[in-house]
Write a protein that binds this DNA or RNA. Structure first.
Length: 104
DNA sequence: CTCGTGACGGTAT
DNA sequence: TATACCGCCACGA
């Protein structure tokens, strides 16, 4: 039996985030068993194919902000999808973790 | 093998 | 409050 790679575990955790909720990179790293390695989570999501069923858009940074350059095409896409799932952004494009952070 | 990179994050200044 | 530093480590050149 091949042991699971960190990526596989990361994807499994991200898959559990329900629509209408978000999780931080650091939180996913912790839940995936690689605490302190938030960057690995970002890299794992970065490698996902463009058409994936994994809800990558539900992972944001610890400040409650989308980790792409504000105004970029990918940034806009992530924001639109999250809004369609019921997530509200404030006037500085920040998401309230208090209200929307996933608590498994 | 070494080196630069990065969808991060906590701490220091 | 904002910016700067690093620690972290898999990946690819």
């Amino acid at each position: 039996m091949g042991k699971k790679t960190n990526y596989q575990v990361i994807y499994e955790v991200v898959n559990r985030i329900p629509a209408g909720k978000v999780a931080t990179y650091g939180q996913i790293a912790m839940l995936a068993g690689i605490p302190g390695q938030a960057r690995q989570v970002g890299y794992a999501l970065h490698r996902l194919p463009s058409q994936t069923s994994i809800p990558w858009q539900r992972v944001i940074n610890s400040k409650g902000r989308i980790s792409f350059a504000e105004g970029s095409a990918i940034w806009n896409m992530q924001k639109v999808i999250l809004q369609s799932e019921g997530i509200q952004f404030d006037r500085t494009n920040t998401i309230s973790l208090r209200k929307y952070q996933w608590k498994p």
